[in-house]
């Protein structure tokens, strides 16, 4: 099973590498967004899927990441790549600080608190005292980066969209590796232990408060990095593009993709990027009704998410009785 999934990831990476040479620039841009969303979903999945803390406000961290990148590029002359670690660090801190008081809240109450964060942040971004940096309702426009010159010298001329895709892909791979490492070790187990039985986790020596708030920080960091990459890809940030719908979409993404599953973040990202488009093509009049049908269809047919369905399918194929447990990266 382990070897099988390694081969799976290898093939996936290969496909990801040739993809931009096979499809149009616009599609390349869309796949860049899939990568961006997969990092954001991975972040939310670490928190909600692995640690059991529900967030209805992760769009806020996505927005913070995006604005950090935009403001640093626009006002401080940062090169686009240098904004990524800063956005991650800012969100790590923001998430940790939000996670501390949120420790007192469980389940739906935490969902409400994070919802409050998600709805209020876009308004804060419009606040006129911050306008000097954030551009108020107008937002900030950023320029699209060119591929570095050495690639052309090496005989690998990439257009802007292709370059941005590969840049995002490289960061996606790094983020997924970090998450995989974290989740398969003692702290990943501690996160899941807290989710399954927090009293027993503490009796085993897990510092629940510390692990939960740091998990919140790490989760926000992933989503913030995604936000920064998303801003660079879209070349524009404005408060209204980060409304509460973004947070809800992320939650939909991790449930459809598969809770507590690393590849689930990729499936979920494909879903939230392409299914609204498909719905739009079906019916211009009522795309959300079609989207809703897709949503119900997926949850009905794949109660464990796409990742769960694939796991079950593979288990049947290889003929091995394999448990369909979530939580195994």
């Amino acid at each position: 099973m382990k070897r099988l999934s390694l081969i799976g990831y290898g093939v996936l990476l290969l496909v990801a590498c040739v993809l931009p040479f096979l499809v149009s620039e616009y599609r390349t841009f869309q796949f860049t967004l899939v990568l961006v969303y997969s990092i954001a979903l991975l972040g939310l999945n670490i928190l909600t899927g692995y640690n059991g803390q529900i967030s209805l406000g992760h769009g806020a961290f996505y927005a913070i990441g995006a604005y950090v990148a935009a403001v640093l590029m626009d006002k401080a002359g940062f090169p686009y790549w240098a904004t990524i670690p800063v956005a991650g660090a800012v969100c790590l801190l923001a998430g940790f600080l939000f996670g501390l008081p949120a420790l007192r809240l469980e389940g739906l109450y935490l969902a409400l608190a994070t919802f409050a964060l998600g709805v209020s942040l876009p308004q804060l971004l419009k606040y006129h005292h911050f306008e000097g940096w954030t551009g108020g309702v107008q937002g900030v426009v950023i320029t699209k980066p060119d591929a570095p010159e050495f690639l052309a010298v090496l005989g690998l001329p990439l257009n802007q969209d292709q370059w941005l895709y590969f840049f995002t892909l490289a960061i996606t791979v790094v983020m997924f590796l970090l998450a995989w490492n974290l989740l398969r070790g003692r702290l990943g187990r501690a996160m899941m232990a807290i989710r399954d039985n927090h009293v027993a986790a503490e009796a085993m020596g897990v510092n629940n408060a510390m692990v939960k708030s740091l998990t919140f920080g790490v989760s926000a960091m992933f989503t913030g990095v995604a936000g920064a990459l998303g801003a660079i890809a879209i070349q524009f940030v404005a408060p209204d593009s980060f409304n509460i719908f973004v947070s809800l979409t992320f939650l939909i993404g991790i449930v459809i993709g598969g809770l507590a599953s690393i590849p689930g973040a990729i499936y979920g990202a494909l879903f939230i990027q392409f299914v609204p488009n498909i719905a739009d093509e079906f019916s211009k009049a009522a795309p959300w009704a079609i989207f809703g049908l897709f949503l119900i269809g997926f949850t009905y047919l794949m109660p464990l998410g796409i990742a769960g369905a694939i796991r079950l399918g593979l288990a049947r194929l290889t003929g091995k009785e394999h448990n369909s447990q979530p939580g195994k990266p």
Binding site: R189, M192, A193, D196, N197, V199, A200, A201, A203, N323, Q325, P326, G327, K328
Partner: peptide, 11 residues
């Protein structure tokens, strides 16, 4: 019993 029910025995 206060086990981590969705996790494996080894975990």
């Amino acid at each position: 019993l206060a086990l981590f029910r969705t996790m494996t025995v080894l975990d």
